[in-house]
Computed example of a mutant assay.
Amino acid sequence: MTTRRRLVLGTCAVLSFPALAQQRASLADPLRLGADTALVESGLAAALQTAFGRATGVAVKLQAGPSLPLLEALERGELDATLTNAPEAETRLESQGLAHDRRRVADSALVLVGPAPKKKQPDPAGIAKMSDVAAALVQLRDAALDQPSISFLSAGDGSGAHAAEQALWRAAKVAPAAPWYAKAAPGGLATQARQQGAYALVERGVWADRGGAPLAVLVEGDPRMALPVHVMRSFRVSHPAGKLFVAWITGPKGRAVVAAQRGYRAP
């Protein structure tokens, strides 16, 4: 079942429930926060969790996972709030009245990484320093078809980075396919791409924390690679500290935490 269909079904289901959200018992209950895998791997989610807890005394229980399944859990009331980087899915959920209080927390982006050029020798696909990411992906595909040693590794997990990667392939009018295109195994896209010497589109915060040789950032800065981070609250449940959490992480103190994390900018 597609994400879109699940969200539509969720809209029908919510009509059978009372209009008011179910109140969580007390502030003693941890606030259940779902965070996209990339935001956990980069350290951003934990930094916000820790800083908010120290400032307010409210415990936050962090649940890592890909953005799309987390947003479905938010709609069902299994999470109190989410930190995700999947704008299209977030907007759809909000417009259907299945979540609310959506606010931007941080700005990040994808970076296209691959084998680092060596002095006068370019990377195998010859895409380093290209400014148009769609053109770079077309050239990467063409080079991979000619050179079996070239490969591209995808998260393939429904994360925000994966959804953004798929949008970029569509912009390039390329349908990526085996044998040069493969899905990463559980355990981290950046790490596996480095181990395999593969090309990959990686969230900038993750690359700042886990990237490095033998790969390098080859393409960046195209506006289509932007990957903003938003917080949202569930309509099904209402944690007593839910409003406070959203206000705090999007306020001056939360922005200071974001600004201190490599790979992110405060909005």
Rank of each mutant, 00 (worst) to 15 (best):
G97F: 11
A99G: 15
E94L: 15
D107S: 11
R104K: 15
T84D: 07
A116H: 03
D132H: 09
K119H: 13
I127T: 09
G126K: 06
G126A: 09
E75D: 15
E72F: 00
K120C: 10
L93W: 01
N85H: 15
T84A: 11
A106R: 05
P66N: 02
V111F: 11
A86Y: 07
D132K: 06
A81V: 10
S67I: 00
V111K: 05
S95Y: 09
P87D: 01
A125Y: 01
P115N: 09
V111G: 05
G65F: 00
K118M: 13
A81N: 02
S95N: 11
L93N: 01
A86S: 09
Q96L: 12
D123I: 02
P66Q: 01
L79P: 03
H100V: 12
A86V: 07
E94I: 13
S67G: 04
L110C: 08
V105H: 02
E78K: 11
Q96Y: 12
L79R: 04
K118A: 13
V133W: 05
N85Q: 13
A134L: 10
P69L: 03
G77Y: 07
Q121I: 13
R103D: 07
A128D: 14
R76P: 03
S108I: 01
L79F: 08
V105A: 04
K120G: 12
I127M: 09
E88L: 09
D101T: 12
K120Q: 10
M130V: 09
L98R: 14
I127G: 06
G97N: 11
S95T: 13
L83I: 06
P124S: 08
L93A: 11
I127H: 06
D107N: 11
G77F: 10
L83S: 03
A134S: 13
L112R: 02
A106Q: 08
V133H: 07
A86H: 09
P117M: 06
A99N: 06
S67K: 00
L110R: 03
M130P: 04
L93Y: 02
G126P: 09
S131E: 13
K129V: 02
P69A: 05
D107T: 13
S131D: 12
Q121A: 12
R104N: 10
V113C: 08
K118C: 09
V111H: 07
S95A: 15
M130E: 15
V113Y: 05
L110V: 04
L74W: 01
R104W: 10
R92W: 02
S108Y: 04
